[in-house]
């Protein structure tokens, strides 16, 4: 029973990590109507920036973390300036394809600059797990979960209650209408990408803390996709619930179903959930009901 509860808690915390990465998707979507396929690449770029500032430059964590976040924001801004500003008002297809192009472009750049070798990632959160009776809770995931919840509450307040947040919401509804109401579409998209890159970097710190860093870590971007869809692409608060549900289901599948069938069903369960959501309720749990159904 203790193990069962432990699995549920660990699953929920991993789900919260997915939710944090998915928050990068949602923030970019929520403020620019661009669905960013290259989210996982932003996570490894964030990871490499953190690795570079701590391990290469040798800065202390108190200095390197803020510096990494600033640098990540700068990368996000550059990507937006080079690729996305030019596509304002273009079709969904163009936007999706540019982020797909970015997906392999950024992976190539990371491979060129850093190579495929495995690097140690700095220990940002204490390695010692939290012991609750017989239960083991990884410290990085626990702190990460708290960060996720705080970020979700903060960002959902920002997007739903502040004036600038509502402006960005208008941009996500329609670029042309928003622009004609005097809202800066460019500014909104730039902000979205800066925020998306920063959230990805925080996700990278939690995910990789004390582990090793390779470009394969970008898979977490695709792992976070189902969470973003389950919550509905517009809902930031909903990510927390969706993340916990998917994380728990995945953890239980891995621990109880996989030994029976002898395969890794756990890694594919999120995508099966995603397909089911797309078929049954494409808006997700809390998304806006604006998806055109055919």
């Amino acid at each position: 029973m203790v193990y069962f509860i432990n699995d549920i808690i660990t699953g929920a915390l991993i789900g919260l990590l997915y939710a944090l990465v998915a928050m990068g998707f949602v923030v970019i979507y929520r403020a620019s109507k661009v669905f960013n396929f290259a989210q996982g690449e932003l996570v490894i770029i964030g990871g490499f920036i953190v690795w570079f500032t701590t391990m290469q430059l040798g800065l202390s964590l108190w200095l390197s973390i803020p510096l990494s976040l600033v640098l990540a924001g700068l990368v996000g801004y550059l990507i937006e300036r080079i690729f996305l500003t030019k596509l304002i008002g273009e079709s969904v297809f163009s936007m999706v394809m540019v982020t797909v192009g970015l997906l392999i472009l950024l992976r190539g750049v990371v491979l060129l600059l850093f190579g495929a070798s495995v690097r140690p990632f700095p220990i940002i959160f204490p390695l010692k797990p939290l012991l609750l009776g017989d239960m083991l809770i990884p410290m990085n995931l626990l702190i990460g979960g708290i960060i996720t919840i705080v970020a979700a509450v903060g960002l959902s307040w920002f997007f739903n209650w502040t004036r600038s947040g509502l402006r960005m919401t208008a941009v996500a509804e329609d670029h042309v209408v928003a622009a004609s109401m005097g809202i800066s579409v460019k500014g909104s998209i730039a902000f979205a990408w800066i925020l998306g890159a920063i959230l990805s970097t925080i996700g990278a710190m939690i995910f990789l803390s004390g582990k090793s860093l390779t470009f394969l870590a970008s898979d977490i971007g695709f792992a976070a996709l189902p969470v973003a869809l389950f919550a509905g692409l517009e809902s930031i608060g909903g990510l927390v619930l969706a993340g916990i549900i998917i994380g728990v289901i995945q953890s239980l599948t891995t621990n109880y179903l996989d030994p029976i069938i002898g395969g890794s069903l756990g890694s594919v369960v999120p995508y099966i959930i995603m397909l089911a959501i797309l078929l049954i309720r494409p808006t997700g749990l809390f998304g806006w009901r604006t998806i055109e159904r055919v």
């Binding site: 030019k86 163009s94 394809m97 540019v98 192009g101 970015l102 472009l105 992976r107 190539g108």
Partner: peptide, 17 residues
């Protein structure tokens, strides 16, 4: 592999833009 990714990704983005 890396160069292929950079060039193809760049090509996709450039053509779309």
């Amino acid at each position: 592999f890396a160069g292929m990714n950079v060039i193809l990704g760049g090509v996709i983005a450039l053509f779309m833009i």
